[in-house]
Design a binder for these strands. Structure first.
Lengths: 136, 136
DNA sequence: TATTAATCTATTAAACCGATAGGGTAGTAG
DNA sequence: CTACTACCCTATCGGTTTAATAGATTAATA
């Protein structure tokens, strides 16, 4: 299940992508429009800024804005930042690989086999979707 | 992330599928072979029995065994029993649909749009895989 | 009838999630 | 310079879920 963090993060990105011009939008405005807890959203936007998706402007008239074009924002990257691994099992993950404690021979593990197939497919979908693809 | 419940459940099914004949296998044997907590596995096998995948035989020489042929055991069904919804969001689920609190217009939701695409694809993979496909 | 193994009930420790509070810091307008 | 605004950081906390454990019971078999 997707965490609310990821859900809210993508919603916020979408909201910014749908702005006419790229002027800063206040956290409070996004929170209100998307019905998101303000403080929680604050931490999410901060993370997205640190990850290079958003810029921020302080002071009056400040807020958050997209740094890149929506079409250049890859949803697989976004997903990994917000949610973490795309694979459903650590042993089936590219970027977050971890060996299972209980497995003696990974190559014989049926669960891993199945979950790698699922991962490959999910990854492909996320890679092939930009923010522009889902926002418009 | 896949829960250990699901992981252990599929591992146990695989273990049973790989048996030469279909004589009952004791919980303890599976638990030992797959390094699973015995009591935890106990509750999982019980669930799989109640869901029509396994049969159980009590007393000496008893244990659990597959009721159906591995090729007739659909992994999407298994997944739904053990893990729950295949979709990553309730609002993108067929069998476990639930409306989001925060969404005013579901049709405009970019997250849902993306997650439905992921779901459709994951579902297809799970539907197209039987226990036999992943165990052998 | 004794043994064996599944079944049921219940409890618990740990981890994680989502939300909230409060204050600190820094940029901007006037 | 000063006040305001809005980002930034730290800490906490209740609730839920997960994974595991313990003990008692029921049923089948030899």
């Amino acid at each position: 299940m997707l965490s609310k963090k990821t859900k809210y993060g993508i919603k916020a990105l979408t909201f910014l992508a749908r702005q006419k011009d790229n002027t800063p939008v206040q956290i409070a405005e996004i929170a209100k429009a998307e019905h998101i807890s303000l403080k929680f959203l604050e931490s999410i936007l901060l993370l997205l800024r640190h990850s290079g998706f958003l810029g921020a402007k302080k002071g009056k008239g400040g807020g958050y804005y997209l740094i890149k074009e929506p079409k250049d924002i890859n949803m697989a990257k976004v997903y990994r930042i917000l949610e973490g691994p795309i694979a459903l099992l650590p042993c089936a993950s590219h970027n977050f690989y971890e060996k299972c404690d209980d497995c003696t021979d990974e190559s014989l593990c049926a669960v891993r086999k199945l979950m790698m197939e699922v991962r490959d497919n999910t990854l492909m979908i996320l890679e092939n979707n930009s923010l522009a693809d889902i926002a418009f």
